[in-house]
Amino acid sequence: MSRISRLAAVPVAALLSLGLASCASDEPAGETEAASNTWEPVTVEHAFGTTTIETEPERVATVAWANHEVPLALGVVPVGMAASTFGDDDANGVHPWAEEALADLDAETPVLFDETDGIDFEAVADSQPDVILAAYSGLTQEDYDTLSEIAPVVAYPEAPWSTPWREMIEVNAAGLGMAEEGDELVADLEQQIADVVAEYPQIEGATGMFLTHVDPSDLSQVSFYSANDTRVQFFEDLGMEIPASIEEASADTDSYSVTISAEQADMFDDVDVIVTYGGEELRDALESDPLLSQIPAVENGAIVDLPGDQPLGTAANPTPLAISWVLDDYAGLIADAVDKGE
């Protein structure tokens, strides 16, 4: 059975009008006019069960990383969304691609939820949403239950922080009653990716590993994103392959990350490129470590250091608006790393 059951569809033109109406200067952010009387309930299946949106949502709130990018990409301005901290170059809580989308929609910045210590349920409730989008998130059952007391919640389909970008768009768009527009957005992004990847043929077939939360002063353990994680899955969008070692290490877990002893580093002899955060200090530590330096990507210097304090630092985690913004730079960095390994 499909995770998303559309009981009825609103005409596309009407829905586009609905989304754009939310940006009008005389409407509060996220509020929309009823574009038609043809709305019928939309049911979305997810990890916590099913959610049915009985009435056409006029006020849309989003929680967790990047869910706000789906409504923004579809012309709907949320009444509230999670503040962005990682990769936010001007510390205003909004990534540049979201700023551009808001500007294009002639809209003010929505209320920003501070999620430093978890979801701010009070702030979400104060935004008075009709629906809460969280298709890419780490919601617990308790989080979901609490949010559901505020408004219908569109949660992740299977596991925390493991919703691929296509499904993130599909599920959140369904919650807006804009499934067709979501499909069009996915197709457009797929074409953009294909066009950019064609410029870097050396990427095709290279294997990639994403190191994360690595302490340069203590390399006794190696942490990396698993094959369940969207960053690793994005390698495949770029024409790369997930190494068999990463697939094997991910086989018995639903988690988005895995930690192993550095003594097992020889298992990564099939890794051509490493992507990570950490900069020169981490690179130097990897290259000087007697175990980790034997990984082909480390030995060849085929390492992509993403800056965590800049928008490019989010490049590895594909999201609806960020993909277009960082794609060419990210692919170029990976291509340079592949070249070093040849």
Rank of each mutant, 00 (worst) to 15 (best):
D215R: 05
E181W: 05
Y200Q: 00
A206K: 00
S223M: 14
N228Q: 08
Q233G: 05
S220L: 07
Y200R: 12
A179R: 15
P201Y: 08
T230W: 09
Q192S: 10
G208Y: 11
S226Y: 03
A179G: 15
P216G: 07
L219P: 04
T212C: 11
T207K: 08
G177R: 04
Q192D: 09
L185E: 08
Y225L: 15
P216E: 01
Q192R: 04
V197D: 00
D229P: 00
F210C: 02
F224W: 09
Q192G: 08
H213G: 10
G205V: 05
D237G: 05
A198G: 06
A194W: 13
E199C: 03
T207G: 01
H213V: 13
S226H: 03
F224T: 10
E190I: 02
Y200E: 00
D229L: 02
F235K: 05
L189E: 00
A206C: 01
Q202I: 15
E199I: 10
S226A: 08
F224L: 02
G208R: 12
E181K: 04
I193A: 12
A187H: 04
S226N: 11
R231L: 07
I193W: 08
Q192N: 05
V196D: 10
V222E: 06
V196S: 03
V222I: 15
V186K: 10
N228H: 07
D229C: 09
D229Y: 14
G182Q: 08
T207W: 10
F224I: 01
M209V: 13
